[in-house]
Design a protein around this nucleic acid. Structure first.
Length: 135
DNA sequence: GCCAACGTTGGC
DNA sequence: GCCAACGTTGGC
């Protein structure tokens, strides 16, 4: 089981959009590093859902429901998408500011490499964020 | 709205 | 293959 973080601008696609759809396609990724992370995902993997720009907080948890397939938003076969299902919306979203202020999260890619939109997360970091979200 | 960080493109 | 120019992302 692997753990991930998916970033989206909520005015484009928010966790509420995913919840109302029931199941979604994570598409539109146009960055090789992010694409490679999508390719490594397996059904059942868990991913944190982060709202960039507006909110700037980790808002919930989703599950990978389908491993990588051709991104349906382009004919260019370099790009991939995965299926996602909502698991929960956090009672307490975790602001980026809080993660940045805590040395424990220093190595989190979200903190270190803010432009990457699909990133792996250590189990220790994942568990800690989950606990904060449900505190 | 600005700008730093980073990725991509294209001329050489 | 290098690197300057340019475009995009995302925090502030």
């Amino acid at each position: 089981m692997n753990y991930w973080l998916l970033k989206s601008e909520p005015h484009v696609y928010s966790i509420d959009d995913l919840i109302s759809e029931g199941e979604g396609v994570w598409d539109g990724v146009r960055n090789y590093q992010a694409r490679n992370n999508l390719r490594a995902m397996l059904p059942g993997d868990l991913a944190l859902f982060y709202h960039s720009n507006i909110g700037m907080e980790v808002v919930g948890l989703v599950e990978i429901s389908a491993s990588a397939f051709q991104d349906p938003t382009t004919d260019d076969n370099r790009w991939l998408a995965v299926g996602v299902k909502p698991v929960q919306k956090f009672a307490k979203p975790i602001p980026l500011k809080l993660l940045k202020a805590d040395p424990f999260f220093e190595q989190l890619p979200l903190v270190r490499h803010s432009r990457l939109s699909v990133m792996p997360v250590d189990k220790a970091h994942f568990d800690a964020i989950l606990a904060l979200g449900n505190a």
